[in-house]
């Protein structure tokens, strides 16, 4: 198993293996971010979603034709364990509600906001910042369309981070390349925050 992380940046594997990252939603953002985090060597992921894989998900989400009809959490969990069988994947097949956010993600060092709808992003960020103000939440905000790479950036207010252009609306359509770029900005930032954290990861 150790050979999986042979090419990791020095010090990264040990640090990340002791970290726990929560991912709220297993769609375009969540499925891609999860894959990158497991490949990076994160020790445990807590994932949550209540949807099943639909054909319209395949244009941007990390699922395959044979997954159609499967629960997203189950399909993603299986895929992640095929990358690293030693990664602990705690999967919640349920619609996330404000009131159970704290209990489901209680052990997460960082939360990745991976919802689709702005309404959901809003309550998730509000709730997380209220319950765990000292723990970062990384949101995907503005990742629709294609191109316009230069407008993708990270904005920060306290421990709330926003990745994306902050302006593109899903009314213009969603394309795998741009969604995956932002999902990986979020994963990359999560890795950076864990690596920069002083002292032991909780």
């Amino acid at each position: 198993m150790k050979n999986i992380f042979e090419r990791n940046v020095s010090g990264m594997t040990e640090r990340l293996s002791r970290s726990v990252i929560g991912i709220a939603g297993c769609g375009g953002i969540g499925s891609s971010a999860a894959v990158s985090l497991v490949r990076a060597g994160v020790g445990k992921l807590i994932i949550a979603d209540h949807d099943r894989v639909e054909p319209s998900n395949l244009n941007r989400q990390y699922f395959f034709f044979g997954d159609i009809g499967e629960k997203k959490t189950a399909a993603l969990r299986e895929r992640l364990l095929q990358i690293n069988p030693d990664c602990v994947i705690e999967a919640y097949d349920k619609k996330l509600e404000r009131e159970d956010l704290a209990s489901i993600f209680e052990n997460a060092d960082i939360l990745i906001e991976a919802f689709d709808k702005a309404e959901s992003k809003q309550w998730l960020i509000e709730e997380w910042a209220s319950v765990f103000p000292e723990r970062p939440v990384i949101s995907g905000n503005g990742l629709a369309g294609y191109g316009d790479f230069a407008s993708l950036r990270i904005r920060k207010t306290g421990n709330i981070y926003f990745c994306g252009d902050g302006k593109s609306s899903d009314a213009s359509g969603l394309c795998s390349a741009r969604v995956a770029v932002v999902a990986n900005m979020q994963a990359n930032l999560a890795i950076e925050l864990i690596m920069n954290k002083t002292g032991d990861v909780k």
């Binding site: 689709d116 702005a118 992003k121 103000p133 990742l143 904005r155 207010t157 902050g166």
Partner: peptide, 29 residues
């Protein structure tokens, strides 16, 4: 620096000199 939940927007006091941050959320994921 303190998050103000949506249900409190109507009543939450903004003191003189306050630093207010407003971020627009876009759908898509």
């Amino acid at each position: 620096g303190t998050i103000v939940k949506r249900e409190d927007w109507e009543t939450f006091p903004v003191p003189e000199g306050a630093d207010v941050k407003v971020i627009h959320l876009m759908s898509g994921g």
